[in-house]
Amino acid sequence: MVKDCLKGKIAAQKQLYDLFSAPMLTICYRYTKSMADAEDVLQEGFVKVFFNLHQYKFKGELGGWIRRIMVTTAINYLKRNARYQTELVFPDEHLHVVNSSESHPEVKMEAKELADLIRQLPPGYQTIFNLYAVEGFNHVEIGKMLGIQESTSRSQYARARALLIQWIEQKNNVAKKNVYAK
């Protein structure tokens, strides 16, 4: 399929798109604030994929390679768009670091519901949370990616995490109340 894509065969490109568009859209969705933006990132990302496919060396899984392009495309998209840019300011002051071993609620909600909660975080928090908690980058890497200090990334993540936990707890409480009410 990749070889056919490299030959420029549209059918193969469509096949590759069909295979990876759904999982990649979830990534784009997590980084953006609307489905339209997510689809814009997806579109931009796939264009990059097809035009850089010759650089894929069959060393790792294609999915991982595409995923990485999507993440970087999403970050670039956020940086580029004014509505995200204003909120993507990462002040370098050392913020209070929340202990990651603090207790946390059990995440009982649906995936979509949790994704929407993450998307409600301020863009800066949202990006760092996604990069650290979901993609699995460490703070040094995130710092390099976003052009911020490692400590800033750490602090922002701690705040994002705390905020999200708070929201999840609220959701959990509401759910409990609803159960009792029934």
Partner: peptide, 19 residues
Amino acid sequence: QNEFEKQVQQKMEELKLVP
């Protein structure tokens, strides 16, 4: 290192969206 991140990651893997 934390269970919370694991849970979030697991949930996100379950997320399915179609463009």
